[in-house]
Design a binder for these strands. Structure first.
Length: 312
DNA sequence: CGCATTTGACCGGCGC
DNA sequence: GCGCCGGTCAAATGCG
């Protein structure tokens, strides 16, 4: 038996170097940071990374163009009214709302359980194989966000155990796989760096925590202030920068923020070290008009009571 | 000593 | 059918 050359040494091809703009020098970098069309073309797989496989790629660009704070002012009201429930969410994506459009979630139909196979397999690969076949891949909804950070593994209040690392095709940076250490919790996350800018960390969460965070965040006030900010982004009533002064975020708070965003079920695009953009991964708004966004049943539609939407 | 990380191997999915 | 690739496992190793 020959082994495959997986071991993580294989893919080291370098790809284009300047897909991203010079966000470091821009005031609000979001529009400049990611040219999603370029990324898409480059086969990096960011879209896959973001879980947007094959659908609505273009909308990402729209999103980056339209979800700036300066534009948010024009968008719908009632965001602040809906943020409090959010605040109480455990630090995990709201799977019910996110999963709906996730291409992986669609795989539910494949989750047939094979009837029991041979019970007494030798306790190694065979058993493993049987186990894998029994519970065929049932993908949890995933969402991703990007963080400009020197640190790969962002602190989100949960404890993670690294269980793997792979080289990423077309990227010199490896991808790390983490799993929540809590016994019954099946949440996973992947962390990798953008191949075009090593300071950008792409974190992809999969699954939902079944337990509260074991570590309370150091700065709970930040957490409190964050949820409204996030909602503001999604729903557009408030100005994010009003509620969350991202420029002054300490490094660790930035990380925490990133992960709190993630826990709220928002994909996040972040250009400068402290800027923030978030959106539900599987419901990227294509239309800058918020009403369209809401009507298009974004994540907020699951969060915001329907009567609130009517009042808009 | 217990837990986390590293890393080579393996497996399944998918495209060709 | 074959090969590539992403994802995961698990033994070895490191660390507090």
């Amino acid at each position: 038996m020959e082994k495959k050359e997986m071991g993580g040494v294989k893919t080291e091809e370098k790809v284009g170097s300047s897909l991203f703009g010079d966000y470091n020098s821009n005031s609000f970098p979001l529009s400049n940071v990611f040219d999603f069309h370029e990324v898409e073309r480059s086969s990096l797989g960011f879209m896959e990374l973001l879980g947007v496989q094959g659908q609505d790629h273009g909308s990402l660009l729209h999103l980056s163009q339209h979800l700036f704070p300066s534009h948010l002012n024009n968008q719908c009201a009632a965001a602040n009214n809906c943020c409090e429930p959010l605040n109480q969410q455990p630090a995990t994506p709201n799977s019910s709302s996110i999963s709906s459009a996730s291409s992986e979630a669609v795989m539910d139909e494949h989750t047939k359980t094979v009837d029991q196979r041979g019970d007494e397999q030798p306790k190694t690969k065979n058993q493993l194989k049987a186990k894998k076949t029994n519970q065929k891949k049932q993908r949890e909804p995933r969402f991703a966000f990007m963080t400009k950070s020197e640190v790969d593994h962002l602190d989100d209040g949960y404890r993670w155990r690294k269980y793997g690392q792979k080289a990423v095709k077309n990227s010199p940076f490896p991808r790390s796989y983490y799993r929540c250490t809590s016994a019954s919790c099946n949440v996973k996350k992947r962390v990798e760096r953008s191949f075009t800018d090593s300071t950008i960390v792409v974190t992809t969460y999969e699954g939902q925590h079944t337990h509260p965070s074991p570590l309370m965040p150091r700065n709970s006030t930040l957490a409190g202030a964050l949820a409204p900010a996030v909602v503001s982004y999604g729903c557009g009533s408030g100005n994010l920068s009003q509620q969350y002064h991202h420029e002054q975020l300490p490094h660790h708070d930035h990380h925490f923020l990133a992960n709190t965003l993630s826990s709220l079920g928002f994909t996040r695009i972040c250009g400068s070290k402290s800027s923030i953009a978030a959106f539900p991964q599987d419901r990227m708004p294509c239309n800058p008009g918020t009403s369209a966004f809401l009507r298009d049943h974004g994540l907020l539609q699951d969060i915001i009571p329907s009567h609130m939407l009517k009042e808009e």
